[in-house]
Write a protein that binds this DNA or RNA. Structure first.
Lengths: 265, 265
DNA sequence: GTGGGCCGTCCCGCCGCGGGAGGGTCAAGC
DNA sequence: GCTTGACCCTCCCGCGGCGGGACGGCCCAC
């Protein structure tokens, strides 16, 4: 039987950390003196401690470590670990795109922003809409657009979406994706809707969506400089998107921000 | 002039976050109403907001973001950014080794642990020692060993080190690296020292140091199973190390834990 | 002038870890 | 037996960056 200090030396985990792992139910000491509260560990707990150590090095949250250790079946365990590696992978992707975007941001090409003010009439469309969290919007989009495509075999224009400002401000907001069509059908989540008539400040973002907010910013600056005010959900129209070509550099996304002129007072 | 809400919509930064960035001195509003405290931003602040956004996506701490933005010279800026990318890179390395080690841990080879109990006499050596933080121990080791090599041209054995248990428990402890030699010299930090006579539980770790603590654990378990108790700083002897071959798989590190027999009571 | 949306400040919680206070326990040496 | 010092216990706080929520003042269109 090992005192917590001895066990700490054997595992290279600090005493404080061992106590925390006990409290969290990750690594129960083999014995706890009911009077003094002293923790006593067994030598065979060392491998477990090391697995925990490794998982923590990979920033696996304590509750997830618990789940992994508690799963008796090695297959389940492996799946949970693989899950986490997957998460690390996607985080790495996020980092990569952020680095690339930062590079572009610090070495900007001369801005060739082409903004057009366009009055858009009310438009009947087939749409799918919902309240969505910002971090699940991509998944939601894929599902909604697939359903939309199935229901609208002969669209009369490129796909698009309306994104509530709250989505970016509060991390959750109303999202609507649509396809223009002559006879809006109704099936599943797909229903007929009408995009309201608005005046749009429109520009086109070229390339992947990693730094689309730069274009958003430039468009916003243009709107401000022209004494306009944004109002209502932004519209994106996917002129050329992943469905057209796998090369993000070729994508064309039209961004339209509903605006109205500030009354000069 | 833009209210904080409008600026938030234009930059995809939440209102709360913008306020925090103001408090932290990262992004001062162009104007603050002295009476109401209302913040007003200018359109030309959008690009700055986006740079901050990107740096935060890379987990650059706010004070560092401040330093980057405050440096007027683009060269300095680039250097600071490169610094951070470097840090991300090394973190990635850490992750990679942790993943590899975890894999080994979950699919263990049959343990072939060969432990020897060895009485070691007092040994005169040339040494460099210091109190070191755990996260700077590798750097310290490189410098100390280089100095040691320069001062001891004809060592009579492989290099080694003594590592205070506190280094692992508290993150900081006393470290001593040494080379055996007939005539211990004195130059710079190098001085004569004597390793005390101890009884060592000794085993050899094969491979890189990524999962050396697994061997530590196995050795510890052996010590416990044989009714021994560890006492004093662990000794590592680098039989085959990076100075000998670049292939970590070929490294041999002898780990010796001072022990004494528990009095049977 | 009034309502509702916007803005302000302040405090709390999250996560995993360490620092530190304040007090009880164990074991070696007398 | 007793003292001493190392060891162990619990409890609270701070870190960093963000969000949630309370509470109150401000702005503007009706």
């Amino acid at each position: 039987m090992l005192s917590i200090g001895e066990f700490s030396r054997l595992t290279h985990l600090s005493v404080r950390t061992l106590r925390r792992y006990h409290d969290a139910g990750l690594l129960e000491p083999e014995d706890v003196d009911p009077v003094t509260g002293y923790r006593y560990y067994g030598g065979e707990q060392i491998p477990t401690a090391q697995v925990i150590h490794r998982l923590r090095e990979l920033d696996v949250p304590l509750p997830d470590v618990r789940r992994i250790l508690d799963s008796p079946d090695p297959g389940t365990r492996a799946a949970l670990v693989a899950d986490h590696l997957q998460r690390l992978e996607s985080e790495l992707d996020r980092t990569r795109t952020a680095v690339a975007s930062l590079r572009r941001l610090l070495h900007p090409e001369p801005a060739t922003l082409d903004v057009e003010l366009r009055a858009v009439p009310a438009t009947p469309v087939a749409a799918v809409e919902d309240d969505v969290d910002l971090d699940s919007v991509l998944t939601w989009y894929a599902g909604a657009m697939a359903e939309l495509d199935a229901a609208v075999p002969d669209p009369t224009g490129p796909p698009g979406g309306l994104y509530d400002n709250a989505l970016f401000e509060a991390g959750r907001g109303h999202v609507l994706v649509y396809r223009a069509t002559d006879q809006p059908p109704r099936s599943g989540r797909v229903h007929a809707a009408t995009l309201p008539a608005v005046e749009l400040a429109v520009t086109t973002h070229v390339g992947g969506h990693d730094d689309i907010d730069v274009t958003y910013g430039e468009l916003g600056a243009w709107v401000v400089a022209n004494a306009l005010v944004v109002s209502g959900p932004v519209r994106e129209t996917y002129l050329v998107g992943p469905r057209d070509t796998a090369d993000p550099a070729a994508w064309r996304t039209e961004i339209g921000w509903p605006v109205f002129r500030v009354a000069p007072h």
